[in-house]
Amino acid sequence: MKDHRKLGAKIWNYRWLYLMLVPILAYYVIFKYIPMYGVTIAFKDYNVFKGVLASPWCGFKVFNKLFANKNFWHAVRNTLILNFATLLVSFPLTIIVSLMLNEVRSALFKRVTQSILYLPHFISWVVVAAISVNMFSVTDGTINMIVERAGFKAIPFLSDNTWWVVTYVICNVWKEIGWGTIIYLAALTGVDESLYEAAYLDGATKFQRLIYITLPSIKSVIVTMLILQISKMMTIGLEAPLLIGNKKVLGVSEVISTYTYRIGIERAKYSDSTAIGLFQSVFNIIVLVLADKFAKLIGEDGII
């Protein structure tokens, strides 16, 4: 009884702080937890006029139909290819750019460079797609005009499957590389300067200090970021492949998000689109757990 009274007294003493939490809790309950019931649409023969509750259950019929569809697995393959290619380029490049920025001694130059790198993150994909068309178009694209004047044939960046993947990766890296450096730069500020001083006195070069001090000091951050990136391998934004892609490169630009858009919005197959979303979530969770287990096996803390 005394414990309950003490707890009640503590809550009353901090009542204004708890009151400030009410809108946040209400937001998550109303917009995050309650809508989760909509996942049941994936197990129902959903009828928009009957609603979620009145629509009849159909078990795993939707999943069976989905997994038997070649177009679905084609979209899954493209999603994994684009995400893996982007990760393969952007992840090491982000670390390299962060290390380079960390070595800059001019505060003004560093701030200007960071601002230039951060800016593309805040640009809409609609604008990025328009820029990419102006840059990579075969007929009047800036790059192809330079290529043709140099005496070479125009490169079909937006109409050839292989070149389209390259273009997609370039656009993604350009847009997000600056934003990705924020965490690494924050981690680099926490490296003990005395380690650098001791290594300098021992005759270590800048490269040796980078390899034996800087990278080991931020290794845990690198592993954590890699796990988080890997856990999103089945998730890809709708805007980039939809806006940059076209019918000529549908073989590589049709990903999970665009496939869901076409069958869910254009064809009104809500059960199918919900099943795809559930499949994505389960796949990402499994990958996250496996990546975390692997990180712990090699001596890292992981994130779970």
Rank of each mutant, 00 (worst) to 15 (best):
1 M>N: 07
5 R>L: 13
7 L>I: 14
9 A>M: 11
9 A>N: 11
11 I>W: 11
14 Y>C: 00
14 Y>T: 08
14 Y>G: 00
15 R>Y: 10
16 W>G: 00
19 L>D: 08
27 Y>P: 02
27 Y>E: 02
28 Y>T: 07
31 F>T: 06
34 I>C: 04
36 M>C: 07
37 Y>Q: 06
38 G>I: 09
38 G>A: 12
39 V>F: 13
41 I>L: 12
46 Y>T: 02
49 F>T: 14
51 G>R: 08
59 G>P: 08
65 K>R: 10
66 L>V: 10
68 A>V: 05
69 N>M: 12
69 N>V: 14
71 N>L: 10
77 R>S: 14
77 R>D: 09
82 L>I: 15
83 N>K: 07
83 N>R: 06
84 F>H: 01
84 F>M: 10
85 A>F: 08
86 T>M: 02
86 T>V: 06
88 L>C: 13
90 S>E: 11
93 L>S: 14
94 T>V: 08
97 V>P: 03
98 S>G: 05
101 L>S: 00
101 L>Q: 02
102 N>E: 09
105 R>A: 13
105 R>S: 14
106 S>P: 01
106 S>R: 14
112 V>W: 05
112 V>R: 01
112 V>P: 01
115 S>M: 14
120 P>H: 06
122 F>H: 08
122 F>Y: 13
124 S>P: 09
125 W>A: 03
126 V>E: 07
127 V>I: 15
130 A>H: 00
135 M>L: 15
138 V>M: 01
139 T>G: 03
142 T>V: 15
143 I>C: 00
144 N>H: 02
145 M>L: 14
145 M>S: 14
146 I>S: 09
147 V>N: 01
147 V>C: 03
148 E>Y: 05
153 K>A: 15
159 S>K: 04
163 W>S: 03
167 T>I: 10
171 C>F: 01
174 W>C: 02
175 K>A: 07
179 W>C: 06
180 G>E: 02
181 T>V: 15
183 I>G: 00
184 Y>C: 06
186 A>E: 08
188 L>Q: 10
191 V>F: 04
196 Y>P: 06
198 A>R: 05
199 A>T: 14
200 Y>S: 14
200 Y>P: 00
201 L>H: 02
203 G>S: 10
204 A>E: 06
204 A>W: 11
211 I>R: 15
212 Y>D: 00
214 T>G: 07
214 T>S: 12
216 P>G: 07
217 S>C: 09
222 I>D: 04
224 T>Q: 11
226 L>F: 09
227 I>C: 03
228 L>A: 08
229 Q>V: 03
230 I>V: 15
233 M>D: 02
234 M>R: 04
234 M>W: 14
235 T>F: 11
237 G>H: 10
243 L>V: 13
247 K>H: 12
248 K>I: 12
249 V>Y: 04
250 L>C: 05
250 L>H: 09
252 V>S: 02
253 S>C: 05
253 S>R: 01
253 S>A: 11
255 V>L: 04
258 T>Q: 08
268 A>E: 04
270 Y>K: 01
274 T>S: 15
277 G>T: 13
280 Q>R: 02
283 F>W: 07
285 I>C: 13
291 A>I: 04
291 A>R: 00
292 D>R: 06
292 D>A: 06
293 K>T: 10
293 K>R: 14
295 A>V: 06
297 L>W: 11
298 I>A: 09
299 G>D: 12
300 E>V: 08
301 D>L: 10
